[in-house]
């Protein structure tokens, strides 16, 4: 831990829920990025948790922007900074709704244009800020306020969509592994062009688990293989050690599901579908890493 900077760019204290893992992520994102950084934040939990005018908990400039507009706004910002010779980091920090749903067009455009920025999606698998409605990133079987009987469809695979744009760097991360996240943000910011990091960020009220389990839940997601940690740099995929270990000896999926109230009453079919999806995903990643596809 000694290598992590001691500076905190989140002042005490945000209005995030107790046990909020996305706030935990933001601490490490900003530690990695340092003070010459601007955050572009679309409508999401992070728009609210900064605090209410006239004081903010964020000690870097934050430009709050409309729901669908984060990547496009960051495009303009990054272009303007480079036009004036500034090296300021531009980081879009967006939830899953603002990324996989309403913001996907702007994200795709910014990636395609080669925008020099880092886009981070912190994924709590629903519209958290408005009280947990389903998003495209909600997993199958999960109850949300708009899927009271459990979601019927599987989670949208935004990573494969992003990968199709062939950005120079993309990675997944999880709030339960803040040092790993820190390293990935550091590396991303050292690379020119569009970068994408997708963080699984468990949410106590949304996923319905006790606040103290926030880190535990993240670890469970990784150890069951529901969430895979990897990096893809210049087209080369590396599965991180912890996910490799999880692939060899995964914890049973039920351990992850039963720890969360949102999966209460999930059907056997939905569990099977989730199991098949994660196995397919692992197979695909393993094949890619081994150069088989």
């Amino acid at each position: 831990m000694s290598e992590l900077p001691k500076e905190e760019y989140l002042k005490k204290c945000t209005s995030a829920c107790a046990g909020c893992s996305s706030t935990l992520c933001l601490r490490y994102v900003l530690k990695a990025a340092g003070p010459d950084t601007v955050l572009v934040v679309p409508a999401c939990c992070t728009s609210v948790l900064q605090g209410i005018y006239p004081t903010t908990a964020m000690n870097v400039p934050v430009y709050n922007v409309a729901f669908a507009a984060a990547a496009a706004c960051a495009s303009g910002m990054s272009t303007a900074f480079s036009a004036t010779g500034k090296k300021t980091n531009v980081i879009a920090y967006a939830g899953d709704g603002g990324t996989v749903d309403i913001g996907i067009q702007a994200l795709s455009g910014a990636l395609e244009r080669g925008t020099n920025f880092l886009y981070i999606c912190y994924d709590n698998e629903a519209y958290g800020n408005t009280g947990m409605q389903r998003s495209g990133a909600t997993p199958i079987g999960a109850r949300t306020t708009t899927t009271p009987g459990g979601k019927l469809e599987t989670k949208k695979d935004i990573d494969r969509i992003v990968a199709a744009h062939e950005p120079p760097y993309m990675a997944t991360a999880c709030s339960a592994y803040p040092q790993d996240l820190y390293k990935k943000v550091k590396k991303a910011l050292s690379i020119q062009g569009p970068k994408f990091i997708h963080i699984l960020a468990p949410c106590p009220p949304g996923w319905r688990y006790p606040t103290e389990k926030t880190v535990e839940l993240g670890k469970l997601a990784v150890r069951t293989g529901v969430w895979m940690l990897y990096e893809r740099e210049a087209g080369k995929l590396t599965i991180n050690g912890i996910s490799k270990a999880a692939m060899k000896k995964p914890l049973p999926l039920e351990e992850y599901l039963s720890a969360q109230g949102r999966f209460k009453g999930i059907s056997v079919e939905a569990i099977r579908e989730m199991q098949l999806t994660l196995e397919r995903n692992q197979r695909r990643l393993r094949n890619e890493e081994e150069g088989l596809c």
Binding site: Q50, G51, Y53, P61, V65
Partner: peptide, 10 residues
């Protein structure tokens, strides 16, 4: 960035 502020917060 040397004088950070939040733009258009709540």
């Amino acid at each position: 960035t040397t004088h950070p502020v939040g733009y258009g917060p709540m």
